[in-house]
Every structure is written in C-alpha cells, then in structure tokens.
Write a protein that binds this DNA or RNA. Sequence first.
DNA 1: GCTGAGGTCTCCCACGGCGGGAGAGTCAAT
DNA 2: ATTGACTCTCCCGCCGTGGGAGACCTCAGC
Lengths: 273, 273
Amino acid sequence: MFRIGEFARFTRVSVKMLRHYDEVGLCQPAQVDPATGYRYYTVDQLPRLNRIVLLRDLGFGLDQIADLLIRDDADLDRVYAQREAALVDSVARLQAQLRAVQARREMLRDTAPDDLPDVVVRPVDSMLVATLTGGADDDVAALFYRLESYVRDQHARAGRPPLTLLPEPDDETVTAIVPITWLVPPADDIEIKLLAAVPRMACAVYQGGYAGLPGLLQRMLHWLDRTGERPAGPIREVYLRFGAEAELGLPSTFLTGGRDDLVTELQVPLADR
Amino acid sequence: MFRIGEFARFTRVSVKMLRHYDEVGLCQPAQVDPATGYRYYTVDQLPRLNRIVLLRDLGFGLDQIADLLIRDDADLDRVYAQREAALVDSVARLQAQLRAVQARREMLRDTAPDDLPDVVVRPVDSMLVATLTGGADDDVAALFYRLESYVRDQHARAGRPPLTLLPEPDDETVTAIVPITWLVPPADDIEIKLLAAVPRMACAVYQGGYAGLPGLLQRMLHWLDRTGERPAGPIREVYLRFGAEAELGLPSTFLTGGRDDLVTELQVPLADR
DNA sequence: GCTGAGGTCTCCCACGGCGGGAGAGTCAAT
DNA sequence: ATTGACTCTCCCGCCGTGGGAGACCTCAGC
C-alpha cells in the first residue's frame, strides 16, 4: 500500500497525473479511504500504469488509451496503424516547416531582411473569368480597359481583383483576366473561362511600384529553389490595389514610381510532391 | 475596404482567426466602425497579414510572431535558429515515437497481444544500497535473507523494493541488493554502494511466477533489437512484490507457480544515442 | 497531549490557437 | 418592412498537465 506521493516517485508519474488518471478512470487506486479521501495504490496497479505510460509515450491520447486497455481484439492493429499514419503525417509536416525555416535562414544570410519575400503556400479557388490575350509588348493597361469595359457592360463584374498570367518561356503572350459573377457571351477575342483551382499556390504580397515586381519574382524563384519546390503552370500577377491610371488606360510608365499605394500579389502554382 | 468575411475568404484566414489576431494586436483592421463595431480591412493589411501567416506556417507562436514583426535587427537570426533547433528536437521526438509504434506493430504480428512486453523508457535515480554477491548457482533467497537481516539489524531498511543484478555473459555471479536509508558499516561480504542513476532505463513490469521472467527478458531484448537500442550495463530484476517465502528463506522452487501476487520489474539500462 | 513538518485532499485557473454556438445587432436587396 | 446573409461580443471546449489556495491528515518528537 503506497500513498500517492510514494507511488508517484516510484513510477515517475506525477501526483497530478495520477489524480487525473483516477478522475478519468484510467488508473484508479486499489483503495480510497472513505473518511479522508486518501488514495492508496498497490503494486497490482503497476502493470496497468506501465501500459498507460507506454501508450502515452507512443503519443496516444488518454481516451484512446482507455480504449486500448479494454480491447485486446484483432482491430488493435488498426489503431496502431492509424497512430502510425498520424505520426508519419506529423513528421512530414514538421520536416516541411524545418525546411522552410532553414531556407529562410539561408536567404537571410545574403539578403537584406526587407527584401526577403514572404512566401506563403495556400490553396486558391477556381473562378469564372473573362480573359483577353495580347502580345507581350501590348499595353496591358489597354487590354484591361477593353476587358473591364466589356464586363461592366454585361453587369457581370465580380468583386475580386483583376490579374494577368505572365508570359511563359515558350510563349510571348500576356493574358489579362477579370473575374465575373456568371457566364456572359464571349466577344471578339475576349474569352470566358473557368480558371482552374490550384491546391498549392506560392503567394507573396508586394507593396510598391510595379518596377519592384521582377525583383520579387526573382527572389520567389530563388525561394522555390531553396525549398525544393517546382513551379507548375503560369505565374499570376494579382492587382490587389492598382492605380486609377490603370483603369483609365493611361500609359504604364505612370506606374513605375515608388508608390506605396499599389499592392500586388505574385502567385506561382506549385507541383504536388 | 473589405468586411471581415470577404477578407477572410480572400486570405484564407478564418474570421475567427482575424478577430483573434485583432484582439492580440497582431493584425488590427484599418478601421472599426465605432457605432457597430464592424471591422473594415484594406489591402494595406495584406503584407502584414501575409507575414503573419508565413511565420505561423513556420510554427512560431503568436507571441513570437508579434516579436518578429517589430524587430528587424540582427538577432533575428537567433530567433530563427532557436525555432530551427526546436523543430529538429520535435522531429527527433516524433521519429522516436514512430519507431516505437512500428516496433510494437511488428512484434504484434508474431506475438500474442498478452505476451507483448510493455517497455517504458524512464530515468532511474541513484540509490544507496547494501549488496551481497553470490555465484550464479547460489540460492538467491538465502542471499536476501542474510542481507535483509543485516540491514534490519542496522535499522537502515529503506522503503524501496529489493533487486538483483543479473549475471552478465562474462560473469557468473548474481548480486542481491537492498536499498538502505543511510550509510552503515560493511560486514563480511556485504558491501555498501551508491547504485548509479541510469538516465534511460527500459522497464517492463511482470505479474506472475518467476518462471515467466526469462521469457519476458527475451522479449525485451527482442524489443531492443527492433527499436535499435543497445543495452549498457547490468540488467536489474526488481522485486516489487515477492512471496513471504523469499523472506523466510524457503527454497525458490516454491516461487515458480503461476502466481499473480508476484510483481517483478525487469530493467535494462540503455546506451545514449 | 501538543506542535510542527510535510503529505494529501478538492477546487479553480492557466496554457495555445483556435472552433462552435448563443443571442443580439447590421447591411443590402426585394 | 421584411428577409437572409453578415457581423458583433461573450462564453465554453479542447488536451494533458502544472500551479496554487485553503483545508485536512499523518506521524514523529517533545
């Protein structure tokens, strides 16, 4: 017969935990003095407590431990398999975090802190859009002017920001894109599409004039390198806030200054891994 | 100007989180309607929120994120290094759990569930003891009888269970050990020692006759194999509850039946890794 | 028998990073 | 004016454990 403190020193399970295990019915003392409430344990409790500690060290929750202590049937392996899968998952997640932290540290070594791109990976939903493709040399603002005008005339403008698809290496075109709320008829070279969802999109928000975007893109690609990610699909430039000039169709040279009111997001679709 | 729901869909940060970040001062809306309490966000918040999400994905706590958002000084790398170390630690811990779960699953495949040893790794404190070493063929009960008698005569018996050190391969001796409360003079071949602490001791509790112990030991060594642990030092057999016969010096053949009142713990010291 | 030290009891709070839900108020379109 | 979709605040729960308050118990020494 041990009192709780002795039993705790013995098993290296804290008094608090023993009381907690008593409360949730995991490991109840052999005897409780009805007058004083003192818990008295015996060595007979040790095998059970030992199993509890083992399962706890395996990372099971207390409710699962309670389950496992009752059942000794065949789908015991199922429970272990499930725990194993959860652990594999956790390890993978932590290792991804670790790689990300290491990549950021390395980039911190040869980049000014302010130039570090804040790259976040998140899913991006599909959206219904109107698109207008032009040559890489076309005035993007002019493309948007035509596109926005058309969509507004159809009363189909969705409350989401416009974007462009950047030209890919093998391609010399830029595509202006405007989200819409429902299907409208295509017109001339304006097409209506469902822009596919991207499960893993690397996103970085940039505040400042458009002249800074190429540098940001370069740093993002550098980031991809460091973290071992591979781009998959066209890069999106999302104009979260753009100057009134863009809407008015003024030449884009107006937009290259150091302007803090412009907010743009670069999005690079990532390949699964 | 976005209301909170729109901003949430946009950034894929839940409304709950945005309110939470507001409350803790991490990311406050650009404007709050004083009459209604409605939060209004602008795209200017995006860079900051993006950084918050990035740091959160790196596994930083919200308080650390708040720190990191203020400081852009040189010991920023220290914070990242610290986070990296914590991650390395977590990964190692989870991988250890994973190995343990896998080992248990594998052993479950070719062992009856009841025969699975519940092996727990825990530190064991040093203790002051009286020891008496005999040949492997000596009657262990007789050794204990002499030892317990001597210690009791000195009024030095500590309230901890007696144990033996099992013979090692190169050695043919068994050592009986009894914990004591303070230094007493040695006598004959009874020695007084400080049994060293063991930081990582593999422990398994066994309930039943002593005939079952060799099998348990074998399964424990099998477990060591599976988990890649290496034994380091003599194996201890701790008699958590033993029959009155042992104290009375009766022949040990009395103790080999299928007796559930006997509780014994096998302890294998593990090498660091 | 008294006192003091050290156990032990129960009950409540805290942690972190949210999610869920209740009950009330707001916004925008019909 | 009604309706339905949002939004507000406030409170609780999670999960396993530690900390602490205030009261009670045990045991040993005087």
